[in-house]
Design a protein around this nucleic acid. Structure first.
Lengths: 234, 234
DNA sequence: TCCTGCATTTTGACTATACAAATAGACAGG
DNA sequence: CCTGTCTATTTGTATAGTCAAAATGCAGGA
């Protein structure tokens, strides 16, 4: 029922999503795929073009086609500092792990993320510091079923978010953005006043239908914003 | 330098963006475009497929290809009520125009939206009410150069946002989302407490490089959220 | 060693054609 | 008038080629 170019598309997509073909991996040339799928080059090309349009692969003449690096954050929107427009240049970034423990998913949490209660999760709290000021408080759950290698990870060298991006090459994500008043603990950590307006970003990430991680990131409202440009073309 | 299918794509896109071909308009069949551009059907098809992938046109066998309805809000993210998950069914929606006046763009505002000072703008303030509760305060500027027909529009029957969607078929948009504390006036209008956390959505919309409108929409933080699902595939 | 130019590979663009699938609209029958 | 059928149109998918453009990596020369 599904067309051939669609099947090829999904086939390769699956290989990329599952990590079988990691970022940077070279994809067989059109001519090779033409043979493996027993079809014409146009059909292969159509599938690869679609993958390129989605940003999953990068194509370069003579060099070949390569699995692109995942950029989940970028595809959604940029998170930029309100004050400084010069966001590209020299940011002093650091992070601090506040807590880290393994526990079993409570019934309430399980309902929220729509997974089965009792599953082992790694809970991490992390404070992100940019140019000396705390700019985000991250509360994360990582499903150890999906990412077993997280069990022994301390996240000291690289924060949970970017560490996960390396471990789980591609995924599906759902974002929710809300405005909330800071509670006492959050206010203290972010060095803002209690009840100050904060941006709360919630992101749940799946890989092949299984929840990988669920994270709540609180940004001080007066310092950060989400921005996105959406054009029909280009 | 640009490829032919790309030229066809841009050609048709321009006709749609400018409103020459309004939503619902039927696009010449592939066979006709094949003649007008003097190329093969495959090339035309590639351009039309790309337009369909971007959601600018809808294609149906035997019927033809049609200009799709603009859905700028949808392409970005859904705005959903936090409380009720049953958002599809019976919402009692109404709006109230709080103020409406034509003035010239101040130097400060001109700098913000990167347009020339002195341009005539229509300023509208509008309160959106859902199920009896105010859910958004909208402060909008409409550039009368770009939308002259707004001069005599009262927005009583249809709020500025949806009215504009009808007038300006397609556009480019930039969104910024921030968390802010409600000031006294806003709090009163939205019937929330002063300093309560609010989601502030700022959107600037262009058509063919000219600013059409600039709007700030304030939502009560405890009642509303922005949500978006982003998947690499499908 | 480093630079330059060239050959070869790989993607990009396009043509011309063929058949399949869907369905709008015309037409016939009750 | 309603209903089912048929047909012509239009898009969807695919093949099998050609020529062009890019650029890698090698070979040869300074």
């Amino acid at each position: 029922m599904t067309s051939l170019h669609q099947r090829i598309f999904e086939d390769i997509e699956q290989k990329i999503m599952s990590g079988t073909w990691p970022p940077g991996q070279r994809i067989p040339a059109e001519h090779e795929l033409e043979v493996t799928y027993g079809c014409s080059r146009m059909t292969v090309s159509k599938a690869l073009s679609a993958l390129a349009a989605r940003g999953m692969i990068v194509r370069r003449r003579r060099a070949g086609s390569f699995v692109a690096s995942p950029q989940i954050d970028r595809t959604v929107m940029d998170i930029s500092d309100i004050g400084t427009e010069a966001k590209v240049a020299g940011h002093a970034y650091s992070h601090r792990i506040l807590s880290r423990r393994i526990e079993r998913l409570s019934a309430v949490d399980a309902a929220v993320i729509e997974e089965t209660a009792g599953a082992e999760v790694l809970r991490v709290e992390c404070l992100h510091i940019v140019d000396g000021r705390p700019n985000a408080l991250e509360k994360r759950m990582i499903l150890l079923d999906a990412v077993p290698q997280a069990r022994d990870e301390t996240f000291e060298t690289s924060p949970p978010g970017s560490w996960l991006l390396d471990q789980v090459p591609w995924s599906e994500a759902k974002h929710i953005i809300r405005a909330v008043a800071a509670d006492a603990a959050t206010a203290k950590l972010l060095t803002i006043e209690r009840h100050a307006a904060c941006l709360l970003l919630t992101r749940q990430t799946w890989q092949n239908g299984r929840t990988v991680t669920f994270v709540e990131i609180t940004h001080p409202g007066d310092r950060y914003q989400f921005a996105g440009v959406f054009h029909p073309s280009k």
